[in-house]
Amino acid sequence: MKISGKHIIEAPVEAVWQKILDPAVLERVTPGIDQLEKLAADRYKAIADIRMGPVKGRFTGSLAIEDKVAPESCTIVLDQKSKIGNVKASITLKLVPLADHQTAVGYTGEARMSGMLARMGQRLLGGVVSTLAKQFFSAFEKEVNG
């Protein structure tokens, strides 16, 4: 499944860059994340509970941040397992300064699902992802400005 979207954050690009790579921040603002445990530089063990209509499950696996180009772009690589199916995703974030206090965060990538997620969730998952992304960015914006 292709994933893409864009959000405008009321904060300068450097501030966004710093916070978006901070695991403590990510743990607080990412919807459903229970735990983000550092394994190595830019490598984390992630546990998340996602409950969104029919897509409901506890996901365990890894999260890595790759191809960092400060303060412009990076790629988040996810490999998550759950009882309802596994997800492998690679999402590239691009930060573009719009004005002094505004940054556009664009994301594009692809997620591959297996099991029941692929079978039943695929059609619904687009909506789930965009809702999660909205929640993430609004929480993130509060974090950056708060």
């Binding site: 297996s114 692929a118 079978r119 039943m120």
Partner: peptide, 14 residues
């Protein structure tokens, strides 16, 4: 089936 062999039509919704 998609290219990875996942079934995209595994219920009466699809």
């Amino acid at each position: 089936y998609d290219d990875h062999g996942q079934m995209l039509t595994g219920s009466y919704m699809d």
